[in-house]
Amino acid sequence: MQVLQVSNVLLNVPSESKEDAIARVGNKLVENGYVAAPYVEGMLLREQSMTTYIGNQVAIPHSMPEYVQYIQQSGIVVAQYPDGVDFGGGNVAKLVIGIAGRGEEHMEVLSQIATVCMEEENVEKLVRAQTVEDVMAVLGGTL
């Protein structure tokens, strides 16, 4: 299952609100044909109900269960924020990884991202990545 494509990596995004960051990765999922537009609304609602910040400078926005009907195919979007995005409570994400997973693929994709991002060394490589190829070298093998 190859859900990470070169066109899904956004580097050096200027800091913005968490809502704008979630909308950015969500709209990229829409633009690249992974989800229909209402899925982005579900991503924003998910963040209102509970944070998608997982620690280690990483947030993984995804949608509420009732919005999975808008997923057309599994995909992820990686947005790198060198100056970070404030997710509240002192939590600053330098990587915002929007995901959309169909069926069982959702937990598989989430698990693979979490496994890679548990290692601080991997997160640092992603935060310092200068090219899309740098990101693909860290994430591309598993996603």
Rank of each mutant, 00 (worst) to 15 (best):
residue 1 M to C: 01
residue 5 Q to W: 12
residue 5 Q to H: 08
residue 6 V to I: 02
residue 6 V to Y: 10
residue 11 L to E: 05
residue 13 V to L: 03
residue 13 V to R: 13
residue 15 S to M: 00
residue 18 K to E: 09
residue 19 E to I: 04
residue 19 E to V: 05
residue 22 I to K: 01
residue 23 A to G: 07
residue 28 K to Y: 00
residue 30 V to C: 05
residue 32 N to D: 02
residue 32 N to L: 15
residue 34 Y to W: 02
residue 37 A to T: 11
residue 39 Y to D: 07
residue 39 Y to N: 05
residue 39 Y to A: 06
residue 42 G to W: 11
residue 42 G to Q: 09
residue 43 M to W: 10
residue 45 L to F: 03
residue 45 L to K: 15
residue 47 E to N: 06
residue 47 E to W: 02
residue 49 S to M: 12
residue 51 T to F: 11
residue 51 T to N: 07
residue 52 T to Y: 08
residue 58 V to C: 06
residue 60 I to K: 12
residue 63 S to M: 08
residue 64 M to C: 09
residue 64 M to A: 13
residue 64 M to P: 04
residue 67 Y to E: 10
residue 69 Q to L: 04
residue 72 Q to H: 14
residue 74 S to T: 13
residue 77 V to S: 07
residue 77 V to C: 11
residue 78 V to F: 11
residue 79 A to Y: 12
residue 79 A to W: 01
residue 81 Y to N: 15
residue 82 P to Y: 05
residue 83 D to A: 04
residue 84 G to K: 08
residue 84 G to F: 04
residue 85 V to Y: 14
residue 85 V to R: 09
residue 86 D to G: 05
residue 86 D to S: 12
residue 87 F to Q: 14
residue 89 G to I: 06
residue 97 I to P: 13
residue 100 A to T: 07
residue 100 A to K: 09
residue 101 G to N: 08
residue 103 G to A: 01
residue 104 E to P: 08
residue 106 H to M: 09
residue 107 M to G: 01
residue 108 E to R: 13
residue 111 S to R: 09
residue 111 S to N: 07
residue 113 I to L: 15
residue 114 A to H: 08
residue 114 A to I: 09
residue 114 A to R: 06
residue 115 T to G: 13
residue 115 T to R: 11
residue 117 C to L: 10
residue 122 N to A: 03
residue 123 V to S: 15
residue 125 K to W: 00
residue 125 K to V: 06
residue 128 R to C: 03
residue 128 R to P: 01
residue 131 T to R: 14
residue 133 E to M: 02
residue 134 D to N: 11
residue 135 V to H: 10
residue 135 V to L: 07
residue 138 V to P: 05
residue 138 V to N: 01
residue 139 L to A: 02
residue 140 G to Y: 03
residue 141 G to I: 08
residue 142 T to G: 09
residue 142 T to K: 10
residue 142 T to Q: 15
residue 143 L to Y: 04
